[in-house]
Structure formats: structure tokens, C-alpha cells
């Protein structure tokens, strides 16, 4: 629930000026002489976790204990097998086999391995799939199948030394909304091959920064920018960074990995919006 902090604080500033933004953006296109902040929309595109996190030793022991407790309080076995399973079916056999296994271990209660594995034994399951994927083993940060129990965020790399990594972003044009701008920029920068669902119409947070002086001299009109982050989820497809936009790479990163790639100021603004899970 980290996002809530930013939502309430950022939105109170962001959305109060949301209606003003449209008129402001319109004025900016006509009166270029006044120095002001450029309004930028960024796509906070994430892939939700695909797997549940691994159980802690305490949780594992707790569930083992509870399985045993439920078993002890359950109805007698003969009543349940006769009713719930067809005679001679595979499911009846596996149920009875499990029960015999438990009976065998009853003398040696310290082990309890039958209860530990009770949640894992799925009839007809071909094999136990590992938590680690091919992408994890190779260290491929561009894959969507890495770190399957964590939320991943899309960062794009620009061809420059400082602040190379950032979320897909771009200026708000004419009278389009923040969300429309973020979606348009995402398609321009990563191609049309990705299906994306916008979680909400309101930004999750904001980040302000000043342009370098040389840049202002060359491009008068704005002396800084205010970036609004629009939360989105990727549904399918993959990002293909557009070289014409000056992008040289992309990565799907966890919260901790994002910290390593971006500047300290950027991290300070972005950190409360990212999920720890």
C-alpha cells in the first residue's frame, strides 16, 4: 500500500491543476515567449507478479501444523471415501494412498513429511515447475518472464551519459489529457506491439526538474518540466524501443533495480509509487 501516500499528496496538486493544465498547454503553444514548466506525461508501465512469493519457514510450519489439525478433527475416513470418490477411481486411490502414508508415519510424528507435501501433490501434474525461469538464469532484463514473483517496471534507455534510464515519457500536446499523452508517447517510443491497460485516469505521482541553461538558451519557452506518472499494466506483447526517438534499450526491472539505474532526485520522486512486492 505504498502508492497511497503519493496518490493523496500528488493528486491534490496534480488534479487541482488538471483543468488548468489544458488551458495552460493551449496557451503555451501560442505564447512561446513566457518561461514556464513544460507538462510531461510518463507511463508507469508495470507487469504484475505472476507467482505467489515463496513461503517463509514459519508459514510453512504453520500450514503443516494446521493440515494436521484439520485432519485430526475431520470425519472418519470410511464415511468420506465412500461418498466423495467413485469406487476404484484414480482420485480415490491417491486419497487412500496418502492416508496410508500418514498412518505409516504416525509413529514418527517428528517428520510429518506427508503434511508438508500435502499442498504440493496434484493428481496428474506433469512435473514441478521451478520458480526460476530461463530469463532469470541468463540474466535477461528485457524478458517479461524474469522475477515472476515481483512487480516489474519498464525503463527505457536513451543514448546519453546522464539520466539515460527513465520511464517512457513525452510532452503533453494541445488539449489532450495526461493519460492520452502517456499512451501516445508509449506507442511512439515502444511500438504498437504491446497491449496496455491504464489502471486509472489520475497520475500516481509527479516529478519536477529544471532544464540545463544551455538547453534553455537553445529552446526558449520552458525553464523546466513537471512529469506526471500514469499507472498502467502490460497485458501482452513486448516493448521495442524506437531508435528514431533516440532510444537504445529497455529493461523490465524490480523496485531495487530501478534505484540502481536512475538518478537520486528521480528515485526520490518515483520510489513511493513503486511496489515492494
Amino acid at each position: 500500500m505504498v502508492q497511497s501516500r503519493t496518490l493523496s499528496s500528488a493528486l491534490s496538486t496534480a488534479c487541482n491543476c488538471n483543468s488548468a493544465l489544458r488551458t495552460q498547454a493551449r496557451h503555451q503553444s501560442t505564447s512561446a515567449a513566457s518561461s514556464s514548466q513544460r507538462i510531461v506525461a510518463a507511463a508507469l508501465l508495470s507487469r504484475p507478479p505472476l507467482l505467489l512469493p515463496a513461503l517463509t519457514p514459519l508459514e510453512e510450519s504453520y500450514y503443516t501444523y494446521q493440515r494436521r489439525l484439520h485432519r485430526a478433527l475431520a470425519k472418519p475416513l470410511s464415511a468420506s471415501t465412500e461418498w466423495f470418490f467413485k469406487k476404484g477411481s484414480a482420485s480415490e486411490k491417491s486419497f487412500v494412498a496418502f492416508d496410508q502414508k500418514v498412518d505409516k508415519e504416525r509413529g514418527d510424528e517428528g517428520e510429518l513429511s506427508a503434511y508438508v507435501k500435502a499442498g504440493e501433490e496434484v493428481e496428474g501434474a506433469p512435473e514441478v515447475v521451478g520458480r526460476e525461469s530461463e530469463a532469470d538464469r541468463k540474466g535477461d532484463v528485457t524478458s517479461l518472464e524474469r522475477k515472476m514473483d515481483r512487480t516489474l517496471y519498464l525503463l527505457l534507455k536513451k543514448d546519453r551519459k546522464d539520466n539515460a534510464w527513465q520511464f517512457p515519457q513525452g510532452g503533453v500536446e494541445a488539449d489532450e489529457s495526461l493519460l492520452e499523452a502517456a499512451q501516445r508517447e508509449l506507442v511512439e517510443e515502444t511500438g504498437p506491439d504491446m497491449d496496455v491497460w491504464a489502471t486509472g485516469r489520475a497520475p500516481a505521482g509527479a516529478y519536477e526538474y529544471k532544464f540545463p541553461k544551455e538547453f534553455v538558451k537553445k529552446n526558449p519557452g520552458h525553464d523546466g518540466a513537471r512529469v506526471f506518472f500514469l499507472p498502467m499494466r502490460v497485458i501482452r506483447g513486448q516493448a521495442k524501443p524506437n531508435k528514431k526517438e533516440g532510444l537504445v534499450g529497455h529493461a523490465w526491472l524490480t523496485k531495487e533495480e530501478v534505484k540502481e539505474k536512475v538518478s537520486a532526485d528521480y528515485w526520490k520522486a518515483v520510489e513511493p509509487m513503486l511496489s515492494d512486492l
Partner: peptide, 29 residues
């Protein structure tokens, strides 16, 4: 959300020292 049962493997690779003693679990209810 995919259902992946890899807990048994996770449990097998975990060092024994971090696991809770079976004696605690086998106490009478």
C-alpha cells in the same frame, strides 16, 4: 497468476538451521 508448485523444492534447498524444530509441531494439540 500461474499456479506453480515449487515449494517442496524450495523447502529442500533451504538450510536446516532456519527451519522450525519438528518438536514444536509434534506437541499434543
Amino acid at each position: 497468476m500461474k499456479r506453480v508448485g515449487s515449494l517442496a523444492r524450495v523447502a529442500a534447498t533451504r538450510p536446516a538451521a532456519t527451519r522450525i524444530s519438528p518438536a514444536v509441531l509434534s506437541r499434543p494439540f
